[in-house]
Amino acid sequence: MKNFPLLTGNDWEKAEDKDIEIKYRSNWSSEFDIPEGIINAVRIMNSSIFLRAMAEVMAIEKIIPDPYFKGGGLNVMTRGGLLDIHVDGNYHDATGLNRRLNALLYLNPQWSPSWGGEFGIYDENGDVCLKKIEPLFNRLVIFDSHDKSFHGIPNTINFPDSHPRRSILLYYYTKEERPASQIQVALPHSALWKKRNFLDKRGNKIRKKYE
């Protein structure tokens, strides 16, 4: 973990909405912002080999990575952090592509169950947790991203100050739209939060500029 940047630098954006999201994420704008020692992992996860494997496993063809890293990159939670139940945004501003997949690579070599921080996958209404996934070191989680794929870490975590909860999070897109069965909001939208009655942080169902 020696290559992971400290939270004291200018490499981070902090989300601090107390009831739904308390975490840090990297503010990369291109591959050139990625630290040495981490760049190779990102290149593998964005490589054609990885994309083809995901396409086969997830049955989604013509997957495209995000060279702009809009929301993707490093994610960190410190003690007291949380990510309430939500579905992700559906649209890539720079390209107009449709969000289809998320990939999480966990970087927590000394994780203990007493720390919490398990990633929850919920039913299509966000009511019932179907599975909790421990953030074990080198564990890769890939899941569909659509309007019914509720997920989150709704309970505050108890990670030690010396070992924050770390991961690489990357998003993947297709030109093809999502299947109709996965769409509840057809127009471009940001993350929609269960605790906010399926609205975004501004209280909107769709992004203002598309209304």
Rank of each mutant, 00 (worst) to 15 (best):
N3P: 02
T8Q: 12
N10T: 14
E13Q: 10
K14W: 00
A15E: 13
I20A: 04
K23A: 14
Y24H: 10
S26G: 13
S26K: 12
N27M: 09
S29Q: 12
F32N: 15
I34F: 03
A41C: 07
V42E: 08
R43T: 04
R43H: 15
I44M: 12
M45D: 04
A53F: 04
M58I: 12
A59E: 14
A59Y: 01
E61Q: 14
E61F: 04
I64A: 01
I64K: 13
D66W: 08
G71I: 06
G73H: 04
V76G: 00
D84Y: 08
D88V: 04
D93Q: 15
T95C: 03
W111P: 00
G126K: 05
D127A: 09
D127E: 15
L130E: 14
E134D: 09
L136C: 12
R139P: 05
V141C: 12
S145V: 13
H151P: 01
I153V: 14
P154G: 07
N155M: 05
T156C: 01
I157H: 02
P164V: 00
I168H: 08
Y172H: 07
T174N: 04
R178C: 06
S181E: 11
K195S: 14
N197C: 06
F198W: 06
D200N: 15
K201N: 02
G203E: 10
